[in-house]
Design a protein around this nucleic acid. Structure first.
Ligand SMILES: [Mn+2]
Ligand SMILES: [Mn+2]
Ligand SMILES: [Mn+2]
Ligand SMILES: [Mn+2]
Lengths: 217, 217
DNA sequence: TTAATAATTTAGGCAAATCTAAAAATATGT
DNA sequence: ACATATTTTTAGATTTGCCTAAATTATTAA
């Protein structure tokens, strides 16, 4: 598998969560920051390699082999992110870019020893689950802040948007994984939400509310 | 700099130690396991980028920028080798291949934090010096076993050949970095050398003697 | 000092991954 | 139902890094 093929497989895997019945060429091209014609070419190549099935004009669906391969790349990505934060003093908004490169280094020994060195972590710095060697995820139920209930106390356990901008925004408002928040008010006008955060209160916009994951505590 | 360009720069850097007056196309092609025509193409491209000077039919010579870049890649390579051995339980014969990939990940923060995490090592698992952030090497005088003197005691401090085969041979004969040996006899017939190694004696061939570096102790 | 030999470069092509532009298929709205 | 809009595919180029074969330049040896 080439670097480009690995990246396409990962993108298709992520898009399949959203589009259950086949990933469209346009969606894939957008995710990959390429043009639709490039996506078509690659989909045909991956179909040739039995990594996915493709019905022309109908979208692509990963095969078991393709899904397993995508999960393998995701495992590497998330383990490296943990390494960067835990061992090399990276902050959670700096790791993604470097992990995009590290994830393509193909050595089972490297990945499995790294896993052990890190103590077999199950979540990455953004709260995303890390599949084990066999590809199994440990899932935790999570709800998005936008759907939180007034009066309920939650713990922050993940983010959807992992852009540096969003993560730095959270940092500057003292929100991180593990932070405890209570929903005080949901404003119907603009869907902003007022939270209790330690001793203080904070109002977050709908964009924030849609990108922060919580669990009841 | 692309992956291929980085690898060519590194190869030219290494060959310049041997061929002081310009690296020939053929030598470069052999080092890179490509054909001479490919080496010519790349040399022209690197000359275009001011990484080296190339006089047609006369060989290539790195510019200061090219040499600095090559040293940077070598620094990454050797730091990752240390990481793999010290932290991930790799043996010295397994690290090179993986480091060949890790060395191309281009993040100053990554490399410098890794350096700090490892305690600023000055030598890699094969006894090769690791340049610092500014590109300065700490050199230690070393002599090759083939030129060792009978009756003298030495410490093993490096290898020339870093192939898995050679390193495994050394492992199986209990020779590693730090091992103390005494030269007992040099056989003129085949240039083999008899060594005292702890309580036992061992005879090593000329091939071994030319690839093991020592310093007087 | 030539002629053979060796090294190097040039010419022309190929595969991967991308692009633009055009054609074909599908979806949508009245 | 049918014209229009959208999506997807195809056709034809481009760039990078590599190849083989042929031409060119340098070296060597008689
Ligand atoms: Mn990431
Ligand atoms: Mn992540
Ligand atoms: Mn190495
Ligand atoms: Mn080494």
């Amino acid at each position: 598998m080439t670097l480009a093929e690995e990246n396409y497989l990962k993108a298709i895997y992520h898009l399949e969560q959203e589009f259950k019945n086949g990933v469209s060429t346009n969606a894939l091209a957008e995710e990959m920051n390429t043009k639709a014609s490039s996506a078509t070419d690659m989909v045909k190549k991956l179909a040739e390699k039995n990594m996915l099935t493709h019905i022309p004009y109908q979208g692509a669906t990963l095969s078991d082999a393709g899904r397993a391969y995508a999960v393998k790349v995701i495992r590497r990505h998330r383990l490296w992110e943990v390494f960067l934060v835990e061992k090399l003093n990276f902050s959670w908004d700096e790791v993604h870019e470097v992990a995009e490169h590290l994830e393509h280094i193909n050595s089972d020994k490297l990945v499995d020893e790294l896993d052990a060195f890190l103590g077999f972590p199950t979540y990455d710095p953004h709260g995303d689950p890390i599949p084990d060697k066999e590809g199994n995820f440990t899932y935790i139920e999570k709800i998005v802040l936008a759907k939180g209930e007034v009066g309920t106390t939650y713990k922050c356990i993940g983010v959807d948007d992992t852009s540096s901008e969003f993560l730095k925004y959270l940092d500057s408002n003292n929100i991180g994984l593990g932070t405890i928040v209570k929903v005080l008010h949901k404003e119907p006008f603009d869907n902003s939400i007022k939270l209790a955060l330690g001793d203080s209160e904070i109002v977050v916009s709908q964009s924030v509310a849609k990108n922060l994951y919580l669990k009841k505590v």
